[in-house]
Computed example of a mutant assay.
Amino acid sequence: MSDTYESLGEAVDDNGGVFAAPMATLRLINGAARLGPGVCATISKELSKHGLGHIPVKLPESSTEDVRIFRLGTQIADVVAAVQVPSHEGDEALRAVGGVASDKISRIKAIIDE
């Protein structure tokens, strides 16, 4: 279990740039007794200070809910931004990601069919 923002960042990096964590973990890292709007806003700011983003954009106030933590400045962050903020550039980024995945799936199917 992550007990600091640094160890949470390591967990993100060790898991390919994305990591699901319960809000209870983020609450404990922050040193808060309870989750509320102010604590969630502080957690969001601290994650950002440590180069981490999160989904959903508005952190839940329930300790049992999971959030997805990702490394800012990565392709994952670019895809998240493309989904969250619709734009023509974002659509192009999503098409590129979809095309790469589609190409890989086609190649795997061809290998299996041989």
Rank of each mutant, 00 (worst) to 15 (best):
P37Y: 06
E65I: 03
N15I: 01
L59I: 03
G17I: 01
P60F: 04
V85F: 11
E10Y: 08
I105Y: 04
S87D: 11
A21S: 14
I29D: 05
E92R: 12
V80E: 09
I29W: 04
S7W: 04
G17H: 02
E92G: 09
E46C: 03
M1G: 13
A77L: 03
P60Y: 05
E6N: 07
E114R: 13
A20E: 14
S7L: 06
D3Q: 12
V79H: 04
P56T: 08
D3R: 12
A77K: 05
S44G: 06
F70M: 03
G51I: 02
I69K: 09
I55T: 05
G90H: 06
I105K: 08
V83H: 08
S44F: 01
P60I: 05
G38D: 15
K49V: 02
P56E: 09
G53T: 03
Y5S: 06
A33D: 12
G51Q: 05
V85W: 06
P37H: 09
T64V: 08
S87Y: 10
A11S: 15
D14I: 01
K104F: 07
S63V: 08
E114Q: 12
A32G: 06
F19G: 01
P37D: 14
L28K: 11
H54P: 00
H50V: 01
G51A: 05
R68S: 10
G9P: 01
G99Q: 12
V18Y: 04
I76N: 08
R71C: 07
P22N: 13
A101L: 14
D103V: 00
K104N: 09
A24F: 02
M23P: 01
A93K: 15
V39R: 10
L47C: 07
I43K: 06
